[in-house]
Amino acid sequence: MAKGKLEIKKMATAGSVESNDILIMISQGEGDIEIELESVVEKQFGEDIKNVIRETLIEEGITDAKVIAKDKGALDFTIKARVRACVQRGVEA
């Protein structure tokens, strides 16, 4: 269920580059969602990971953001959690 539309007000990060984690950096976008991903499993799961990031952003009410993600093999639950935490931090003024 999508929340009301929210806006990224400041640059924020969440997560880490430890194994099984992902570091998400979020900042204001240029009209849509732009994702830059670097992953240890880019070839196998790169598209999946980007989709999870995008869907989670939309669930959180974000449609305009630039995301830079450094993935160390995080599972989906971790990716979602880091995106949510990052959004929470980024929408606070």
Binding site: F77, A81, Q88
Partner: peptide, 15 residues
Amino acid sequence: KDAARILVREYLTTF
């Protein structure tokens, strides 16, 4: 603290 709460929630609702 905020990130941990969210991570724990995602973990426990996923598995």
